[in-house]
Design a protein around this nucleic acid. Structure first.
Lengths: 226, 226, 226, 226
DNA sequence: AATGAATGAGTGTTCATTCAT
DNA sequence: CATGAATGAACACTCATTCAT
C-alpha cells in the first residue's frame, strides 16, 4: 500500500510545531508572498517538477528565508494546498440557505459550483492534487473533503429537508446529492481535467448544463412526477 | 499557454521512425517487459517523480537496453500511455449493440464502464495523466478521447437511434450521454480519484449506482414520462 | 560546414549576462581556483576528454559550486581560453618599441616570441585549441588573433616604418612579418606541437635559431644587400 | 609526464598480433570501408568526441564487425593515422630529384608541399593529431616524422649536395631546410590550423608565397649573394 | 531575520565494448 | 564471419537543503 509522508496527515507542522515556529514573530505577509510564488510553480510543474530555486525566484525571496517559513518542499506544498483548499470552496455554505423555491436554489448552487470547479485555476489544482494522491493520499482526501463537505453534505441536508416537507421523492438523498453535482458539470469537467478542453466554459454553457441538470434531477425526484 | 512537447502529439516516434527503429528486430517481449516496469514506476511516482534507474531495476533491464527501445523518458511514457489507453478501453464498442431493451443495454454498459474506471489501476492512470496534463495537453486529450470515443460517442449514437424510434424523448443526446456516464459513477469516481476512497468499489455498489443512474435517466428522458 | 556553438562567438555569457550573473557577489578567487583546476584537466585531456567531475576534484570545489560560476562545460572552457589567451600574449606590444637598431629589435622580439610559443604550457594550449577548432572555429580564430595582433601586426608596422626610413627594401611587409615569425621557430615549433620534441628548447637553441632568422631576414630585405 | 598508451608506440597490434589476426582471412576492402567511415568521424569530432556507433553507421558496418577488424577505438585510430600519414605524404621523394636548376626544384617542391599541408583535409588531420598528442605522444611524433622524413630530410640532402657543388653557401643545411619549409607557408598555415582562415588557399597565393620563399632563401644562402 | 554560495547525491542520457544468435 | 541487443560505468548537469556571513 502506498504510504504518504506522515506530514501530509496534518496541515500543521510535525509535532504541532506550527505554534512554536510560526509564533516566533515571522511576517505573515512574507509567508503569503512565498505561497504565492510557490503556487505558480507547483501548478505549472506539479510537486516533483517544481523547483525550490524557481519558487524562490518567483516569490522574490532567498532560499534561506523560504526555509525559515517552511520546513521543506513538502511542508510548503501542504501549507499551500491547505490555504487554497479553503479559499476555493469558501462561501458555498450560504448558497443553499434562504427562502427560494427548490429549483432556484439548485440552479444558483449548481451554477456557482460548476463555474468554480471548471475554472482554469481550480482545474490546475485538481490536476496537481490528483497527480500526487498516490504518494500523499491524505492530502488528496482532505482536498476532496473540503469540496464535499461544503457541497455534497449541504446539498444532502437540503434534500432531506425537502423530502421531509414532502416536496421531493428521493429514496437516497446521499446518492441524489452526488448525482446532482455530477449532472451540473456533465461533459465539461472531465474534458477540462484531462485537457481536452483548454479554456474556461462560457457562462451560457454553464447555465445550459445546470438547467438541464435541474430538469433531470426534478424529473427523477420531483414529487409531481411521481 | 501550456505547450506540450511535440512528441506528445503523436504516439509514434518523430518522423514515423517507429518503423525503422522498432522494426530492426528488437524483441517485442523485452519491450513489453520494459513497459511493465515503467508502468509500476510511473503510476506510483508520476512522470517527474519516476526515475529511469528505478524503471530499469523494476523491468530487469540495463540502462543501455532501455535506451535502445525508447528514445528518452518522454518517449517511454508516451508509448506506455498509448498502450494502456487502448488496453483499458478495449471492448466497449460491443456493449451497446445487440437486441436488448434499452434499459438493459444501459445497465450492462454502465456497469462495465463504472467498474472499469473506478478500478485501482485505471484510477492510478487517471491521476498520473491528470498530473501531467498541464505540460502535455495533447497526451491528456488523447487519453480522454480514447475513453470518450468508445463510451460517450457510442452511447450518443444509441440515444439518437432510440429517439428516432420514438422510444426516447431526449432533446440533446450529446448532453444526455454525458449525463448518463456521470450518473453511473456519481459519488464514487471523484472520491476515488482524490484518494478519499482507497479501495475498489464492491460489485454491489456499482450495481446499485448504475441501477439508480438508469432510473434517473429513464425518468428524465423515457417516453412514458414525457 | 563546421558550425561552432554560438557561445564561442563571444567571451561573455549569452546576452551579456556576465555582469548580472557574475557581479552578484561571487568570489573571484574561487572563480580562479576553478579555472586553475579546469586548465589542468583541459590541457591534459582536451575539451571532450576532460571530465567535469575531475575538474571539480582538481579545483577542490563541488559540482554545484562550479555550476554557479559557469553555465556549462563550454562556458567554462571559453572563459578559460579567454583568460589564458590574454595572459600568454601580454606584453608583446612593448618589444618593438624604443631606439635600438633594427636587428637588435628583431632579435629581442624574436627571442621572446620563440621562447614563449615553444614553452610546454603554450604548446599544450595550442594543441588543445587546435583539437577543437573544427567544432569551435571562432574560438580558434580568436586565439590566433590574440597572438597575431600582438606580434605579426606590430612587426608589420615596424617594417613599414623601416622601409619608409629607407633602411629596408621590403616589397610586402605583411608577408615579411609572417616570414620572420616563422623563421624564428623554424624546425622547433612544429616538432614541439606534434610531440616530436617533448621538452622546452634550451635558451641557446632559441638564440641560435633567432640569430639565423635575423640573418636570413636581413639578407633578404636589408638595404645594403639590395 | 604524460604517457601515451603503449599501443601508440607501434602501428601494429600489440605483440605483433597483426599477422595472426589479420592474416585470418579478413576482407581488406571491408577494412578500408571501416577506416573511411572512421576518418569522417575522427576528423570532425576528434578522438574523444568520435563515437564508435557513429563510425559504424558511417562505415555501414555493424559493431561486431568493426571489433573483428580493430581491437578497440585506439587501435582503429592508430591504424587510420598510419594509413593517412602515408597517403598524404606519398610522392614527395621524387620532387627534389632530376636535373632542374635549384630554384626550379625548390619552387616545384615548395608549391607541392605548401598546397598539400594547407588543404582542408590535411589541416583537419593536423588538428586532430595535435589535439591528442598530449596523451599519445608517439602517434604525433610519427605523424610529424612522416612529413619530416619526406620533406625536411630530402631537402636537407639536396642542400648538402648543392653546397658541395659550390652553388650554395649554407652553413647549417639542417636549419636551412626547416627555414625554407616554414617560409613556403608563412602567414598561411598557422592561420589555417587555428581556423582563422577556413578555406583552402588559392593556387595564386601558394605560388606567390613560394616564390617569395625561394627569393628569401636564395638571398640568404645563394652563392652569388655571398 | 535574511542571504545566496556551497554541497554532493541525484537526474536522464551516452559510451565503448561484449556476446548470444 | 557478421550482427546488433545488452551491459553498466561514466557523462554533464540539477536538486533540495544547509550554513557561514
Amino acid at each position: 500500500m502506498p504510504q504518504g509522508d506522515s506530514r501530509t496527515d496534518s496541515d500543521t507542522c510535525p509535532g504541532g510545531r506550527v505554534c512554536r515556529r510560526h509564533a516566533a514573530g515571522e511576517d505573515p505577509a512574507k509567508r503569503d508572498q512565498i505561497l504565492q510564488g510557490a503556487m505558480k510553480e507547483f501548478l505549472e510543474k506539479g510537486f516533483d517538477g517544481a523547483s525550490m530555486n524557481e519558487i524562490c525566484r518567483a516569490a522574490g525571496v532567498s532560499k534561506g528565508t523560504l526555509y525559515v517559513y517552511f520546513e521543506d518542499k513538502l511542508d510548503l506544498f501542504v501549507a499551500l494546498v491547505a490555504r487554497e483548499r479553503e479559499a476555493i470552496f469558501a462561501g458555498f455554505d450560504a448558497l443553499l440557505k434562504g427562502d427560494l423555491p427548490l429549483e432556484d436554489k439548485l440552479t444558483r448552487f449548481g451554477q456557482r459550483l460548476a463555474s468554480t470547479i471548471c475554472t482554469d485555476h481550480v482545474i490546475q489544482w485538481q490536476r496537481t492534487i490528483a497527480g500526487i494522491v498516490d504518494r500523499m493520499p491524505e492530502l488528496g482526501a482532505r482536498f476532496y473533503e473540503a469540496a464535499a463537505q461544503r457541497t455534497h453534505d449541504d446539498l444532502n441536508a437540503l434534500l432531506r429537508r425537502e423530502r421531509a416537507a414532502g416536496r421531493l421523492d428521493v429514496p437516497d438523498p446521499e446518492r441524489a446529492s452526488a448525482q446532482f453535482i455530477e449532472l451540473t458539470v456533465a461533459g465539461i469537467w472531465r474534458a477540462r481535467l484531462f485537457g481536452k478542453r483548454r479554456t474556461d466554459p462560457e457562462p451560457d454553457e454553464i447555465e445550459a448544463s445546470v438547467a438541464s441538470a435541474v430538469q433531470v434531477f426534478m424529473a427523477a425526484y420531483g414529487r409531481t412526477s411521481g
